[in-house]
């Protein structure tokens, strides 16, 4: 009974998510983008590459909010939420790397240099290192949380580290790369969000794309959460 009501109430954002992503793919590949030197048509990747990072940040934020909720209520359900959001956030981070490396191979890689030589220059990018640090922090969170066998202790220590790590994460991916010199766009201000960076047609795809990807991440996570809650219930019995 309750299930029926729930599906009706929660289905709208899933439909929205599919609609937004279909729109992103169709419009993102078909609209006219300005043919800038160097960038050319690759700027379409904006809808996918930046979308991944937006989804990752959204998921990590939801994860830390659930960690705080756990510490306030000591309800183990929030601990599962928190862990699953972090896991899916990591997946989106890795996808962000994948899309970024495709983009990079068309814009940054120097055709006059052999591949490994241009790679060693690119690997020192502060933005890449910052994102790698973010992922490592969350891998460390998974290692810490899953290494403790006591359920309550695991949840409590995991939540504490999650909050602490999130607070340290912000400087590493929002502030530090802006202080160090970099090839990556976004030295001053927010890349792709400023008016001068993106024309109005791209903006009409950009924001729906970001929301669509974030919704997709949340959707995947809710499925994982349901699975884990079932597993946990089986353990309890």
């Amino acid at each position: 009974m309750t299930n029926n009501i729930n599906t009706k109430r929660t289905a709208w954002w899933k439909i929205l998510c599919v609609a937004l992503l279909v729109y992103t793919f169709i419009a993102g590949l078909l609209i006219k983008v300005p043919n800038l030197p160097l960038l050319g048509q690759t700027s379409r990747n904006l809808f996918f590459h930046v979308g991944m990072w937006m989804a990752m940040m959204t998921l990590f934020t939801v994860s830390v909010v659930n960690a705080i909720r756990y510490l306030r209520t000591f309800n183990l359900r929030y601990d599962i939420y928190s862990r699953q959001y972090a896991t899916v956030g990591i997946v989106f981070g890795l996808l962000g790397y994948a899309t970024g490396s495709i983009w990079m191979s068309y814009t940054w890689a120097d055709p006059n240099n052999p591949l490994f030589k241009s790679f060693s220059a690119l690997a020192r990018e502060p933005k890449l290192i910052g994102a790698a640090i973010a992922l490592l922090i969350y891998f460390a969170y998974l290692v810490l949380r899953d290494s403790i066998s006591d359920i309550d202790k695991r949840a409590r220590i995991g939540a504490v580290y999650n909050i602490f790590a999130y607070a340290m994460l912000f400087p590493s991916i929002w502030i530090v790369p802006r202080i160090l010199p970099s090839l990556h766009p976004g030295q001053e201000g927010n890349p792709a969000l400023e008016l001068k960076d993106v024309n109005q047609f791209m903006r009409m795809v950009e924001w729906p794309a970001f929301i669509g990807w974030a919704l997709l991440g949340v959707w995947i996570t809710t499925l994982k959460i349901r699975l884990n809650l079932l597993k946990e219930r089986k353990l309890m019995q």
Binding site: P126, I133, L136, A140, Y161, A165, S172
Partner: peptide
């Protein structure tokens, strides 16, 4: 485990 937890957190400050 302290090294595992700490290295990624401290790299930005160390940089």
């Amino acid at each position: 485990i302290m090294a595992v937890l700490g290295f990624p957190l401290i790299i930005p400050q160390l940089l």
